[in-house]
Design a protein around this nucleic acid. Structure first.
Length: 680
RNA sequence: GGGCGAGUAGCUCAAUUGGAUAGAGCACCGGCCUUCUAAGCCGGUGGUUGUGGGUUCGAUCCCCGCCUCGCCCA
């Protein structure tokens, strides 16, 4: 409702400006006054025009207000418009009409054509998921929910991908650990995996420790060395690492098979972990197929054709295929004669190997459907209750698979440390004149999750004196520093379970467990979403394990309270809202009615927030909105005791007010991937 | 050395992207459970928005200098 009025106001004022001053203003702000007494919407448009019209803002506002008030019938839902302050146009709404529209769930639609690809999670399959990966996956999953079609909005067609680097150095390192530190063969690796499953152990946790051990082994600093190893020994270990990595890239050998077994087993664990948080994927493209299906060869041809890639013949990059960086473009100019562009990005090294950026460019050309003649094979990997998760294969494709790639817009949820590489890919697209693709490429960048020094010490890590003074300690899979996602979730669930057990002994074990999980997920997802993207989260158990104040459970609790009222009143939220249609709503215009009206007004803003969260790629806005709405409801809850209300008209209005808050809180939490428990 | 980001209440974060009196949570102090669930509500303490200039009707936000921290690249 709120959004609808915003749009009609904008259109109306644009028309007036064009007719009266011949000014075409495409975008201007619609705000909320600081106080409801000033109205429901505020337009600072007169300030914008002051300079262009060489007139005082207040004079312009007065003229506009007169014009708007004279044609109020063209603005349905608006009661009056007045000038305030130095030149604000304050809008008052027709509360009765607005409440009826909100109760009937009339709201602006969100959505459009085109296929949008959201890529998130993308954990190297060589270790357990940790809190940093959780932030990534929760951001991506929430954003995907905002885009997708649902009961509330038309939405966009969306595909969710989780990229798997199963042939990279990280997987190679774990293979080195298995083969060279634990003496495993292909056969004994199979036994190990079977054994871990039988004994109920988590493969990814096993690899977590092994990965940290291998890192120490390379450096000669771990428990595997009682005395410092000789330089020749360290060189030998480094060579083993390179050889193993090479074996993975080439494929079709025992080392590669071991890597595949391990990385697939770890990947299955990641899928399980994320499913605990209601995070699902549609497709898992793997680097092994990008290599085996020779995506790069097609990309190289295209890049050479389009002139973004060229062979450097001189300077430090002699013999490499390089790409000009943005800002250094001088196609066909004298620049090449002046000398080599030392700042150019190396794509193919002089030894013929492709850099990571090269492979990434090929992959992104595929995403946009720009890689001629190349597509993955698709195989089923995992079944969710509502859909299949597919995985890439170099074998023949399953004909039942949907198509991925050929996206109109992509969103890559990748932390801000990858800003440079991401910009390189965009620059490549732009250089190839794929302007549309480059324009619709969003690096959904976010800051990392680190740990407070205290948190690191609590986990048993020994910090240097220097590290203890830092604001935070970076999570490091390589060092084995970090809070594992499953451990955190287990901890949260246990804490929630203790509360539920003591509050609801009448419920069955299974019911209490289910509620505890909903609360734990609510706490965790909200915690990861409440910070805006470019804030480093310094993780601390005290904050993350809290169920009070600005948390997910606070909002869930508000929903439970509302639901209790409907239950005890012998009605439902839906019925309470339907009763508004033929109710006397005159009370809304009284002073007392204003506080009720504020709840309706806030509830009607969900559409505005969703749209804002999408356009800024900032789910935190929606998280904060959900909390605000819960605060507003709790305030209302304490001020009005609905079931004791004797006046039937007023009681119906109060019930409906609780119901509108309830409806929008449930919706907002749904987009955040948080369920509303039946009781708490 | 270059690039990106950040610096706001004791702590952790917001601020509708340049708008009206800079707001929340935590912590602390005081009040509220015989009521629809206290995982809650009400009140209070707490600010020279790192710093110096500039731009304009208006700056936490934009521009320049400096300081501090983080990340990436070399």
């Amino acid at each position: 409702m709120y959004r609808t009025i915003q749009l009609s106001l904008q259109a109306r004022i644009q028309a007036i400006l064009l007719a009266k001053y011949e000014i075409a203003l495409t975008q201007f702000a619609v705000e909320q006054p600081p106080n409801i007494a000033l109205g429901e919407l505020a337009l600072p448009v007169a300030f914008e025009l002051a300079k262009r019209l060489r007139k005082a803002p207040r004079a312009i506002a007065t003229e506009l207000a007169a014009e708007l008030n004279a044609t109020l019938d063209q603005l349905p839902g608006v009661a009056s418009i007045e000038v305030a302050g130095a030149g604000y146009l304050n809008i008052r709404l027709d509360r009765v009409a607005a409440v009826r529209a909100i109760a009937a769930d009339r709201h602006a639609d969100i959505g459009g054509p085109g296929f949008r690809l959201v890529e998130h999670t993308s954990i190297n399959p060589n270790k357990a998921a940790h809190i940093g990966h959780l932030r990534n996956a929760i951001l991506g999953d929430t954003f995907q929910r905002l885009l997708r079609p649902d009961d509330y909005k038309r939405g966009y067609q969306v595909g969710v991908q989780n990229y798997i680097d199963n042939t990279g150095v990280q997987v190679a390192d774990v293979v080195v650990g298995l083969v060279h530190l634990e003496g495993k063969t292909l056969g004994s690796t199979r036994e190990l995996l079977a054994n871990l499953v039988e004994t109920g152990q988590r493969v990814d946790f096993y690899c977590w420790d092994l990965y940290a051990r291998v890192s120490h082994w390379y450096a000669g600093t771990g428990l595997d060395d009682t005395t410092a190893p000789a330089p020749t020994e360290l060189a030998r270990r480094k060579q083993i690492r390179l050889d193993t990595l090479h074996a993975l890239e080439v494929g079709k050998n025992d080392t590669a098979v071991i890597a595949d077994l391990i990385s697939t087993a770890v990947l299955r664990r990641h899928i399980e972990t994320m499913q605990r948080l209601s995070i699902e994927y549609d497709f898992l493209p793997r680097e092994s197929e990008i290599l085996s299906l020779h995506f790069w060869d097609a990309a190289r041809t295209l890049m050479l054709d389009r002139g973004v890639l060229y062979l450097e013949t001189d300077g430090k990059n002699k013999g490499c295929y390089v790409m000009r960086r943005a800002g250094n473009e001088a196609p066909g100019s004298e620049q090449e004669e002046v000398g080599p562009d030392e700042d150019a990005k190396v794509i193919v090294r002089s030894n013929g190997t492709v850099t990571y950026v090269g492979k990434d460019i090929a992959y992104h050309l595929w995403k946009f459907g720009l890689l001629p003649g190349k597509d993955f094979g698709y195989a089923k990997f995992h079944e969710y209750p509502s859909h299949t998760c597919w995985i890439s294969t170099s074998a023949a494709s399953n004909s039942a698979a949907p198509t991925f790639g050929r996206a109109d817009a992509i969103y890559n949820v990748i932390d801000s440390r990858q800003n440079d590489p991401q910009n390189n890919v965009i620059a490549a697209l732009r250089g190839m004149n794929f302007t549309d693709a480059a324009d619709h490429y969003t690096h959904f960048s976010y800051e990392m999750v680190a740990m407070t020094p205290r948190c690191a010490v609590d986990l048993g890590y020994t910090l240097s004196d220097e590290d203890k003074l830092r604001p935070f300690i970076e999570v490091s899979g390589r060092k084995g520093y970090g809070v594992k996602a499953d451990d955190l979730l287990d901890k949260l669930t246990a804490a929630a379970q203790a509360e539920v057990d003591s509050r609801h002994p009448e419920l069955s074990e299974a019911e209490r467990k289910a509620i505890a999980i909903q609360i734990a997920v609510g706490a965790l997802r909200y915690f990861m979403l409440r910070f805006t993207r470019n804030t480093v989260i310094a993780f601390d158990f005290k904050d993350a394990l809290s169920f009070e104040g600005e948390t997910g459970p606070y909002i869930q609790y508000a929903i439970v309270r509302a639901a209790n009222i409907f239950r005890k009143a012998g009605t439902t939220g839906e019925a309470a809202l339907a009763a508004v249609a033929d109710l006397d709503l005159a009370a809304l215009n009284s002073d007392d009615g204003t506080s009720l009206w504020q709840t309706w007004l806030l509830a009607s803003r969900l559409t505005v927030l969703i749209e804002q969260a999408i356009s800024t790629a900032e789910p935190a806005y929606l998280a904060r909105y959900a909390f605000q709405l819960a605060q507003q409801f709790n305030n209302f809850y304490h001020r009005h005791h609905i079931l004791n209300e004797t006046d039937p008209t007023r009681r119906t209005l109060l019930l409906a007010t609780a119901a509108v808050a309830w409806r929008e809180m449930v919706r907002a939490l749904g987009y955040l991937g948080i369920e509303a428990p039946p009781v708490m």
